[in-house]
Computed example of a mutant assay.
Amino acid sequence: MNKNNELVTFAGNPVTLVGTQVKVGDTAPDFTVLRNDLTPAKLSDFKGKKVVIAVYPSIDTGVCQAQNRKFNEEATKLDNTVILSISCDLPFAQGRFCATEGLNNIVTLSDHKDVDFGTKYGFLVDELRLLARGTVVINEEGVITFVEYVPEITNEPNYAAALEVL
């Protein structure tokens, strides 16, 4: 398994990302995560749509909450696009947050069981078993058109750059 400790930091300290970092032009690897009702969801379930994958460490932090609110707001402006919000949080915590906040334009998915997304896309933080913050945009043909591994996990992603490619 690939490991990279030069790409991102957490609170200023380098962390090790496990898996293969994806890049623009790659065919997006399929992955399996869990929906809020514990049923599996795959990237291939959204075939034919543009997909924004909003990746974050924990729904219980202010930056992660802001990220989910922002992508939920932007989702209403996008045609033929689904926003998948993925973390290693339990599906129940994700569902509770979205219900409390009234976020119904994003699809929250949990990678906690197998970290299949985290390792296939290189977002898994080895030291914490959480996902690093970032964004992946995939076109209708399943090709990655934008990737951001946020250099400092405690910072928000570059929303404008991600949304611009849509």
Rank of each mutant, 00 (worst) to 15 (best):
M1H: 08
M1E: 08
M1K: 09
K3V: 11
N5R: 09
E6L: 13
E6Q: 13
L7T: 13
T9H: 06
F10N: 12
G12D: 00
L17T: 04
V18G: 05
T20L: 06
Q21T: 14
V22A: 02
K23D: 07
V24Q: 05
G25E: 00
D26G: 09
T27L: 14
L34Y: 15
N36E: 15
D37V: 03
P40Q: 12
P40A: 10
A41D: 06
V52S: 09
I53P: 00
A54R: 02
P57H: 04
I59Q: 13
V63A: 05
A66H: 14
A66I: 13
R69P: 09
K70P: 01
N72L: 03
E73F: 10
A75D: 06
T76K: 15
K77I: 07
N80E: 07
L84P: 00
S85A: 14
I86A: 08
S87Y: 02
D89Q: 02
L90C: 06
P91A: 00
F92W: 05
G95S: 05
R96W: 09
R96E: 11
R96G: 05
F97S: 06
C98A: 12
A99N: 10
T100S: 15
T100F: 15
N104R: 04
N104E: 04
I106F: 01
V107K: 03
S110C: 01
D111C: 00
H112N: 13
H112C: 14
K113A: 13
D114E: 11
F117N: 00
G118N: 01
T119R: 14
G122P: 02
L128Y: 13
R129A: 15
R129S: 14
R129C: 11
A132F: 06
T135N: 11
T135A: 13
T135S: 08
V137E: 01
V137R: 03
T145H: 07
T145Y: 03
T145F: 06
F146Q: 05
E148H: 03
Y149K: 03
V150Q: 13
P151D: 05
P151K: 10
E152P: 07
I153M: 09
N155Y: 08
E156K: 08
A160L: 08
